[in-house]
């Protein structure tokens, strides 16, 4: 019995150290847009059902130069939070050495989300209805269950984006330098495609691609040394879908949502 209690207390300490301490942002629930700026660290943002007022929180963990991650209680020393003109600005402090500051956000799903990650880290965004705009440097960008549109610029990292619905008039632009681009779209989605894969790429599509020019290696999963640059349509065409990578393949899939 004593051993079990001892083990449980150890586990609870470990859990306590590594979970996020949440700070409540519900005072900002009226904002229309959130702009998150970070330097090093992962950003995890989940859209919560708007009716649930409790779910507007920020959690922070800190990884120090010795690679030890701990939750942060004095969030204000790591992150600044400011509201201006119905836009909430969340910014991490400038890192020293190799420390990173990881953010865990739970935000009402109808707020427009903008993220700028200046040096590196993974970005994961789930369930936002009004679009996301992301500018990242090192690290992959994964978007799940996004509505309206997405504008993503990454450098060293793949982009994976899944859309639950798209605004038929708004373009989607996913651009990276090193890494593939994978997008999942609703089956009835109508888009004009601009596809650019400059090296080591191929184009893969669940949709029927309508193009006046032949697209090399289409659906062959064979890496091409030549650049693949093409304009095409799916389902007759519509707003722009701009997918570009300097180095990697492009996959356009039908969403299973």
């Amino acid at each position: 019995m004593k051993t079990i209690k001892y083990i449980l207390s150890i586990l609870s300490v470990v859990y306590y150290q590594n979970t996020f301490s949440q700070i409540d942002l519900s005072v900002y629930k009226h904002v229309e847009r959130i702009h998150v700026t970070s330097y090093w660290g992962n950003i995890n943002a989940v859209g919560t059902f708007s009716g649930n007022e409790k779910e507007f929180t920020l959690g922070v963990t800190h990884t120090n130069n010795s690679n030890i991650t701990k939750r942060v209680d004095d969030v204000i020393n790591y992150v600044s939070i400011e509201e201006k003109n119905k836009i909430l600005y969340i910014e991490t402090r400038l890192p020293s050495g190799f420390e990173s500051i990881n953010l865990d956000l739970k935000i009402p799903e109808d707020i427009l989300l903008e993220i700028k990650l200046i040096r590196g880290g993974e970005i994961f965004v789930d369930n936002f209805n009004n679009g996301v705009e992301i500018n990242s440097l090192n690290g992959s960008v994964k978007l799940d269950r996004i509505g309206e549109y997405a504008i993503v610029n990454a450098t060293n990292g793949e982009i994976v984006a899944n859309f639950k619905h798209l605004n038929k008039n708004k373009p989607v632009s996913l651009i990276t330098m090193n890494g593939g681009v994978t997008i999942e779209l609703p089956e009835n989605c109508r888009r004009e495609l601009r596809l650019i894969s400059r090296k080591n790429g191929y184009i893969e599509s669940d949709f029927k691609i309508e193009s006046s020019q032949k697209i090399a290696n289409l659906n062959k999963k064979k890496y091409s040394k030549e650049a693949i640059i093409s304009t095409a349509k799916i389902n007759g065409g519509g707003a722009l879908l701009f997918l570009s990578t300097e180095n990697g393949p492009i996959a356009i899939k039908k969403s299973k949502i």
């Binding site: 504008i151 008039n169 708004k170 373009p171 722009l240 701009f242």
Partner: peptide, 10 residues
Amino acid sequence: TNTDKLGFIY
């Protein structure tokens, strides 16, 4: 908006 600008340029 950025989306309007993107569409316009394209």
